[in-house]
Every structure is written in structure tokens, then in C-alpha cells.
Design a protein around this nucleic acid. Structure first.
Length: 605
DNA sequence: GACGGAATCC
DNA sequence: GGATTCCGTC
């Protein structure tokens, strides 16, 4: 019923490129699907419906026929087509909306990667897709006060179609990442939770969270189109409270969808997955700024998002990898190892979450790494196997931990196949992909008692230039984001924070070395050698940590299980910060500079 | 209906 | 690599 055009479902143009690329005669299925979704004439066959990015195939056989026609496969049928669609699950381009027949959901986040390969995600490490592992599955997280959602009155007609379409396009431009992958994950969560849990951090909040507090509905409306704009909902379109919607307020862009199109398709399709961090004011600036799905804006957004996510203690998985940018590796608190780890899930505790630990050897915790046993998405056969093999858990544990020592080759462990993944490690796309989403969700809860330890730069992405985004987040976001409810248009997470150009009105950050007015590049140079030393030291430390940690885990795990609820050595009290403010600041400087250089380099492409 | 393995095609 | 085809299973 709804199409991007008539509902404000403003997906970026690239998402609708018929053949993806001019010379490509081999249209991909997802492109074809989008194509159909975009066309009014096929609304009776396939249409957007439900959650953002979600669509329902109303006439499976017809869609299959059309697909077959396009591919010159007259024998095509829904069974085959659906098989192709299922292959997208692992690729995280698409996922199934459970419980709804013929209903799938796009994960545009992934598609962004596909269409923006220039955005170096770090050799295969894609967007932590959807599932930016939300610390507590969304139900425990609480926005910091003064989030846009609180600023915007529920009565304000943010759902105005006109506004949506236009605002959406604007905002959407700024929401490329999602981190979501969470999309999938959260999608699962959503269904599992049945919507109740979304009350506090529901889609509405999520979407509202994208609006800058300062941008009233009116201003947005005026600024971005107003009535009659793209996205005017066609008659009969779902509106607020539509029973068809799984949400109190349809997250769908355009018709009834609160800020629907506001979200970029690239952004997690699942509001719930964003909630934990979407509200970050860091995204707000994007609203008013000129952001579009062009490389530069995309990169800016990604960075902002990256940091934003980090600021919200999301799993490292939720991070993109940028060239020369390596996520920090929070060190576990050496001082308060027993500290309840749940605390770190709350924004207020953030200030101490991400430090430059790896630059401060003395502050480092013996091991920044944490490992989490994660059952792999068992195939039917595998499931059978594991099911029949009792005690698989323990045995797998053993083997898993054995694999731990390998770290980079956990998959090589023999059966029982239980994936051992360093919680802190940014998985490669493939790794993420093989992880069963639903299981991930379940694991998210586990994370609650755990700590998301940022990945270690073992991915081969320009290990030399370490840009500690986490530090930035901890350094700046913590200080600014939550302190300035009524931030100016450019908000707390300004370009400078993102390692971009410094805003004229915003003096460059003061660095320890009194580099206040020194250009980023110069500051960068000045810091370079110094940081190199620190990094070298830090990396050695980390390598050691990992090693020791892995060994330690292997040894301790059995004991820990035995002691059941004992106060055994927790794997992670981590989110402490080990770096002195001054050093964090210094590193932050470096990161900014690096980020900028990185952007500049890419911008030149 | 949905899933996913396996073989195969292009 | 991205389907397509077939098929067993749930």
C-alpha cells in the first residue's frame, strides 16, 4: 500500500536503482524487491507494511513470477524466490518478520555498505548491523534526561506526512548506520517482547530521539516540506494508533509513522534497536545540517553514529571500522572488579566507560578481553547433534576456550560447535552473519551482566593509526551530550567532535599540550610520535592481556561454573577507565585529527 | 510456511 | 558471488 513515494518512505535513491549499477544486467533480488515496492502498480502484490523497512508479499506467486520474468526464469516460484530471500538473512540484508506470513524486513544498514563500499568498514567487518547489541535489550536502558522525546510533545503532530517525507529525507540522510543490525536482532526482540517492552523505549522514542530538541515540529515542518510534501499518506494509510502497526505509533515513515522516513533506511529498521543510543543528541545535528546519502555525509554520519553508539556502551559489534580508526579497548577496572557490571549500561556511568586505556599501561587491567561463549547458529543437523550430545555445553566450553587461545580462529574448534567470541572483538561481517540473530538477542541479556569490551585492532585495519573513537565518546560525549539538553543546532556532537572541520564558533578542543588554536593536522603531527610510543606500548600490553586473559579464562571457567553463583572472578567489570583525563583528552585530539585525515583521504576518492 | 543444506548454474 | 533448484525437516 505504501511506497516510498507516496508514503514518505524516503529511501535513498541508491536503494531504488533498478539494476544497482548501470552496467549490471544482473539485478539482485533485493533490488528487484525494492523496485516493486516503489511502484504503485505492484502494491497489490508487494507493499511496505508494518515496521520500518518491513514489507509483505501479498501475492507470493506473482512476485515470484515477476522475478522469474526479470531473470528469465519462467520456472521461478515463491519457494525458490524465498530461498533466495533467505540467503539474505545471513547477509543481513533482509530478515524475516516472524509470525507474519510473507513478511520480511530490509536491513538497509547493510545495503548502505553495499552501496558505499568506499566507506571502509575494515576488511569485511561490516556494520555491526543490526544488532548493535543493545546492552540490555532495550528494556533497561533509559535515555538521559532531556532527550528529544521528552522535548517533543506527544501531541505535536510529528507524524504529519508532509513533514515526515521531507524531514525524513533530511534526517534519514543523517542516519546511515544503525548499527543495527540490531535490526535483525531487535526485530526478534520486538516480537519476543510483544511490544510491551517498547513502552519506555519504543519506536516513538527512538524516532523522536532523532529530532533535535531545538527543532520543533513546526520548524521542521516548515523547513522540510510541510503538507503536501513527499510522503503525504495516501488515503487509508495507517496513522497513529493503527491497529495494523505493532507500535503504539507506527514507526513507518510517512503515514502514521513517527518520523518514519526521518530515519534513513540505512538506520536500523528496528526502532527498538536504536533506542538505546539513537536518542543521542549526536544525531541531532544531522537533522538541520545538510546531510544526504552522499559519501561525505555518509561518512560523517557513520562517524557520528559510531561514536554515539559507543557512547551508549554498545557492543563493539555495533561499530563500523574506519580506515585508520580503531575502536578503543576499554580496560576493565582494576580498582573495582566487583563493581556491578550492569551499571555501565546507563548513560550516566559512561564517563568512565571508555578510556584510552591502551595508552596507559599502568592503568591497564590485566586483560581487556572478555570472552563470551556464543552458540553458533546451528543448522538443523548441528542442532540435532548438539541436542543429542548431552553436556555439550561443558564440553563445548572446553573446546571453545581452547579455541580461545587461537582467538582468530575460533571457528576451527571441533564439535561441539559453540562459537567463542571475544565479546570485545568486532566480528567480521561473516562472523556476525553466522550468528543467529535470535540467539544474539538472548545473549544480549547476558551482556547485561557483562561488559562490552571493545575490539582489539587485530583486524588489520591500519593498526598503526589508532583513532580511539571510544575515547572521543567518553571524552566529549559524556561531557557534552548529556549536559546540554538545549544544545544549539549543531548540537553537542559537532563536526569537531566527529573529527571533522571545526566549527567557526566552536573553538578547537583544548588539548593538554596547549594546542588550542593549532590546526588539527598540526596537532596531529605533534601528537603523533608521542602517541606512537604509547600505542606501541599499549598494544604490547594488550597482546599480553589477551594472552593472559585467554589462558586465565580457560583455567577459571571450570571453577567459576562450579562455584555457580559464587563471587568468582568476574570476567568483566570493565567499563572503568583507566586513563587520566589529560591523557584521554590528548588521545581524543589525536583521534579527531586522525578521523579528519581519514575523511579527507577518502573524500578525495 | 519457513528454514537451510547441497548441488548446480551463470 | 548470487542466485536457482531440489529437497528434507520442522
Amino acid at each position: 500500500m505504501k511506497t516510498p513515494g507516496d508514503t514518505g518512505f524516503a529511501f535513498p535513491d541508491w536503494a531504488y536503482k533498478p539494476e544497482s549499477s548501470p552496467g549490471s544486467r544482473q539485478i539482485q533480488l533485493w533490488c528487484f524487491i525494492l523496485e516493486l515496492l516503489r511502484k504503485e502498480e505492484y502494491h497489490e502484490v508487494i507493499a511496505w507494511q508494518g515496521d520500518y523497512g518491513e514489507f509483505v508479499i501479498k501475492d507470493p506467486e506473482e512476485v515470484a513470477r515477476l522475478w522469474g520474468a526479470r531473470k528469465c526464469k519462467p520456472q521461478m516460484n515463491y519457494d525458490k524466490l524465498s530461498r533466495a530471500l533467505r540467503y539474505y538473512y545471513n547477509k543481513r540484508i533482509l530478515h524475516k518478520t516472524k509470525g507474519k506470513r510473507f513478511t520480511y524486513k530490509f536491513n538497509f544498514n547493510k545495503l548502505v555498505l553495499v552501496n558505499y563500499p568506499f566507506i571502509d568498514m575494515g576488511s569485511g567487518r561490516g556494520v555491526p548491523q543490526s544488532a548493535p547489541p543493545v546492552p540490555t535489550g532495550g528494556s533497561h536502558f533509559r535515555f538521559p534526561p532531556s532527550t528529544p522525546s521528552e522535548v517533543l510533545s506527544p501531541n505535536e503532530d510529528l507524524r504529519s506526512p508532509g513533514m515526515f517525507s521531507s524531514v525524513a529525507r533530511r534526517m534519514g540522510r543523517g542516519s546511515v548506520s544503525d548499527c543495527s543490525d540490531g535490526t535483525s536482532t531487535n526485530s526478534e526482540l520486538e516480537e519476543g517482547v510483544g511490544g510491551e517492552d517498547r513502552g519506555g523505549v519504543g519506536p516513538e522514542r527512538a524516532f523522536r530521539g532523532l529530532l533535535h530538541p531545538r527543532l520543533s515540529h513546526d520548524s521542521l515542518f516548515r523547513a522540510y516540506g510541510g503538507p503536501g510534501g513527499l510522503g503525504r499518506p495516501p488515503p487509508g494509510h495507517r496513522v497513529h494508533g493503527d491497529p495494523m502497526s505493532p507500535f503504539p505509533v507506527s514507526p513507518l515513515p510517512g503515514p502514521g509513522g513517527l518520523l518514519g522516513s526521518t530515519l534513513s533506511p540505512a538506520l536500523s529498521m528496528t526502532p527498538g534497536s536504536h533506542l538505546p543510543y539513537t536518542p543521542s543528541p549526536s544525531l541531532s545535528p544531522m537533522l538541520g545540517s545538510h546531510f544526504s546519502f552522499n559519501p561525505d555525509d555518509m561518512k560523517r554520519y557513520l562517524q557520528a553514529h559510531h561514536q554515539s553508539v559507543y557512547n551508549y556502551h554498545l557492543s563493539p559489534r555495533a561499530f563500523f571500522h574506519y580506515p585508520n580508526i580503531v575502536v578503543p579497548q576499554p580496560h576493565r577496572p582494576s580498582a573495582a572488579p566487583d563493581k556491578p557490571i550492569t551499571a555501565h549500561h546507563h548513560a550516566p556511568s559512561m564517563p568512565h566507560s571508555h578510556s584510552l586505556h591502551h595508552h596507559q599501561g599502568e592503568e591497564q587491567h590485566p586483560s581487556p578481553f572478555k570472552f563470551k561463549l556464543q552458540p553458533p547458529p546451528l543448522g538443523r543437523k548441528q542442532r540435532d547433534c548438539s541436542a543429542s550430545s548431552t553436556g555439550g555445553s561443558s564440553s563445548s566450553l572446553g573446546s571453545s576456550y581452547a579455541a580461545l587461545g587461537l582467538l582468530s580462529n575460533s571457528s576451527s574448534v571441533g564439535p561441539p560447535k559453540i562459537k567463542v567470541e571475544p565479546v570485545s572483538d568486532i566480528e567480521s561481517d561473516e562472523e556476525v552473519e553466522v550468528t543467529d540473530i535470535s540467539e544474539e538477542d538472548e545473549l544480549l541479556d547476558d551482556y547485561e551482566g557483562d561488559v562490552f569490551t571493545p575490539p582489539h585492532p587485530t583486524n588489520g585495519t591500519a593498526p598503526t593509526a589508532i583513532t580511539n573513537l571510544g575515547a572521543i565518546a567518553a571524552d566529549d560525549l559524556d561531557e557534552d551530550v548529556f549536559k546540554t539538553p538545549a544544545a544549539p543546532p549543531m548540537g553537542p556532537l559537532t563536526p569537531s567532535l566527529l573529527g571533522l572541520k571545526s566549527e567557526p564558533g566552536q573553538g578547537p578542543p583544548i588539548s593538554p599540550g596547549g594546542t588550542l588554536c593549532i590546526p588539527l593536522k598540526l596537532r596531529f603531527k605533534r601528537r603523533w610520535s608521542e602517541d606512537q610510543k604509547m600505542e606501541a606500548y599499549g598494544e604490547r600490553e594488550e597482546a599480553e592481556d589477551k594472552k593472559v586473559r585467554a589462558e586465565k579464562e580457560v583455567v577459571e571457567e571450570p571453577a567459576r561454573r562450579e562455584s555457580e553463583n559464587g563471587e568468582g572472578p568476574r570476567r568483566s567489570p570493565s567499563m572503568s577507565l583507566g586513563a587520566p583525563p589529560a591523557q584521554r583528552r590528548a588521545s581524543s585530539e589525536l583521534q579527531r585529527a586522525t578521523a579528519q585525515l581519514s575523511l579527507e583521504n577518502h573524500g578525495a576518492c
